[in-house]
Amino acid sequence: MTGQLDWLKGGIALGLTFLLAVILVKPIGVSTQFVILDGLIWNTFSKELIRPDSTAKSGYASSNAYLDKSGGKYAANIKNPANYSFIFALSMILGGILSRLLAGPTPSARDRVAPASWRRRFGDKSGRRYALAFVGGVLVLIGARLAGGCTSGHMMSGMMQTSVSCYLFALGAFMAGIPLAIIIYGRK
């Protein structure tokens, strides 16, 4: 089980992980936690962002419409960051570290700056890669929040539950992702 797993072993491991999460707690999702971390940062600068509100379902309300939605669910999570979903997302970083230390696939120093396809196309300069990775991050999270989930929550957790919305999501993601990847990185 060293290095990168082939698709058969990897697919079984990944499938069982998603299954275990649903059996024990709830379907896996990640992108909401970017909102929670933003809210935590924002909340340190603003006294008015989140306030206790006994009429709200979660017990909290927010001056921001997004944090206030669904009965102030996100607002409550920002007030209590030691909640399941936030700790789950942070733990994923730990999982990556552990796998690397326990004989998992290890990137080279150059891979850590930019993947090989990128270097072949745009060279070894780090600045452009970092700028475009940043732009990609902006697009990915605007998209994930508009869609209400990301690759984990929609594509994986959604499809295993036969959710209709995840087919819409996967259609959009591949419809944009495949042509753009071919345009940027070429086919060969």
């Binding site: 992108s31 990556g96 475009l132 999270l141 998209g143 690759t151 999501f169 959009g172 944009a176 753009l180």
Partner: peptide
Amino acid sequence: GVLVGGMLLGAGWAIAGYCPGTGLVA
């Protein structure tokens, strides 16, 4: 918005090679 959001995510995914979860693991 799920379709439109999926497309935005797909575009960023192609540019960066990361999605929210795999970015954290990376």
